[in-house]
Design a protein around this nucleic acid. Structure first.
Lengths: 120, 120
DNA sequence: CCGTATCCCCCCTGATACTG
DNA sequence: CAGTATCAGGGGGGATACGG
């Protein structure tokens, strides 16, 4: 793996790659992009802007490129005017979905646990 | 849930809490701390410094407090001289372990996939 | 329609020194 | 042993304008 891509960190004596996954997911909009791609199969650039209204074009481009660089998503370019680009999950990206789903579940659980035990 | 704790973001029309989990895990050393607590049951402050030599005291304190604030870990203080403090996972924190484990697996898979298809 | 290119600010992190 | 306090830097992210 190229050294300039990810800074791997060992989990002390054990070798674990949680950090690798976390680093790939790091970025304010990455999980949102992946989640939407999971729900929609294929998404065009402007569709993303509709689905995630708060994101800026710059950020959208950047996060999409990061995800593509790491092989989680790919884009298909239709050479036509006006241009049309479709983004979709790769097999590698799809393998992340169960984890994202588990994180969603845990997050819901976390939120609930605070509703009941609001110790503040 | 206190508003000053987490900035929840909806996954477009769907309500998903991936971001919540990601935000709780955000921080350079959080996953490392949780992983080590999973492998050691109970860890003292100075033991963390041995297990994660690169971390500074300030960061260790800070990340431990964040995790405790969100209820993933707890500490037991033994009132004695010199002081002794033990950190351990709460049930909520333990429920995160399978996810961290899955992230470890996926990370290893990711690294492997680049060993074979080094397209650079 | 699908992006790039700049500028700028905030906050996370690190280094270092001090304390009960 | 188990922390706090303070200062400084760097990078991620936002706003805005421009290009093929």
């Amino acid at each position: 793996m190229p050294e300039d891509r990810l800074n791997k960190v060992s989990c002390s004596n054990y070798r674990c790659e949680i950090e690798v996954t976390l680093e790939i997911l790091s970025g304010k909009w990455k999980s949102l992009i992946l989640w939407n791609l999971h729900n929609h199969e294929t998404i065009r650039f402007n569709e993303f802007k509709r689905l995630i209204p708060e994101i800026t074009q710059k950020m959208l481009t950047q996060q999409l490129r990061d995800l593509a660089k790491n092989g989680l998503i790919e884009k298909k370019i239709y050479p036509q005017v006006p241009p049309m680009v479709e983004y979709f999950l790769t097999p590698l990206g799809k393998e992340l979905i169960p984890i994202l789903d588990a994180m969603d579940q845990w997050g819901k659980h976390f939120v609930d646990s605070f509703k009941h035990t609001r110790k503040h």
